[in-house]
């Protein structure tokens, strides 16, 4: 099964890497975004403000990580799957000798290859250009990576659930925007979550999205104790289980009732 998923991932990555020029543009785009964030915060810090005990270098690092993680977390299968449902191509995909979830997980990993390339290059270039704070320790860096990998799985099932609503609504674009909005607010993508009102933080603590950006970056800085890191990983494990079961349930429900578009 794993070999099949890898084969699909490779195929998808190969197709993505065919558009190398696109990747280059993405990297440029992300670097400009980072520059904008850095300049804004530079202006704020120049006023002599001290924000939440973060140094300017830390804030710079925060945004370099945010923007570099954005494709890794955000380039999911939502649009691909939604589009496939809308134009009926999903019909073909339901006929593969491999489960629907495995197939799309393969696609997700394929997308991750491109996103990883873009993210890592953006990160390295900006690190050189603007300077960054290094991770607290090798252990913290590894924990940072583990939490991100688990987040990718959480987001995968979250996206599967959202996309399957296209079976009923045929809406693709709206759902993509909804997903983006939810993730960018509750993950700390827009600003560190400590800048938000307390009730937003409470919701964010409950939802699994702060583990996409905010928590791993804090782990990177060494702000979380080992026990808190363990708690984070357990929380992610629970969310993965819940979303997985929910996604399967919706899929089995949908597959019985759908009339697939086209022909």
């Amino acid at each position: 099964m794993i070999r099949k998923i890898i084969a699909i991932a490779k195929q998808d990555a190969r197709e993505g890497l065919y558009y190398r020029f696109d990747l280059l543009l993405y990297i440029c785009n992300f670097m400009i975004q980072i520059a904008v964030y850095v300049f804004i915060w530079l202006a704020i810090y120049n006023q002599g403000n001290q924000i939440l005990g973060m140094s300017f270098e830390q804030v710079t690092t925060y945004y370099i990580l945010v923007v570099s993680l954005d494709p890794i977390i955000g380039w999911g299968i939502n649009e691909i799957l939604g589009e496939a449902i809308r134009d009926g191509q999903v019909l073909r995909e339901l006929l593969h000798p491999i489960s629907f979830f495995s197939y799309y997980f393969g696609i997700r990993i394929g997308e991750l290859v491109e996103a990883g390339i873009v993210g890592i290059i953006t990160f390295l270039l900006c690190a050189i250009l603007f300077g960054i704070v290094l991770p607290q320790s090798l252990f913290h860096f590894c924990a940072f990576l583990v939490v991100i990998v688990l987040s990718i799985i959480v987001i995968y099932f979250f996206e599967m659930i959202l996309s399957m609503s296209a079976f009923y609504t045929n809406s693709v674009w709206g759902i993509e925007i909804l997903k983006r909005a939810i993730i960018s607010i509750f993950s700390g993508m827009i600003a560190p979550l400590t800048l938000f009102p307390e009730w937003v933080q409470k919701i964010a603590n409950f939802l699994p999205f702060q583990e996409c950006i905010y928590t791993p970056i804090n782990i990177y800085f060494g702000e979380l104790s080992n026990i808190e890191i363990l708690q984070t990983i357990i929380k992610q494990g629970i969310w993965i289980t819940v979303l997985y079961l929910l996604a399967k349930f919706i899929f089995h429900k949908a597959i019985k009732n759908i009339t697939i578009n086209g022909g």
């Binding site: 195929q11 190969r14 197709e15 191509q89 073909r92 593969h96 022909g263």
Partner: peptide, 29 residues
């Protein structure tokens, strides 16, 4: 696993890749 199907305009070939790559994936799947 035991059937094959062609549905009108739906395809199992990968748009941006050479045909043989799609065949190879089918072989693996």
């Amino acid at each position: 696993k035991q059937i094959g199907a062609v549905f009108g305009q739906k395809t199992q070939l990968w748009w941006d890749l050479p045909v043989i790559e799609s065949f190879r994936l089918i072989k693996k799947m």
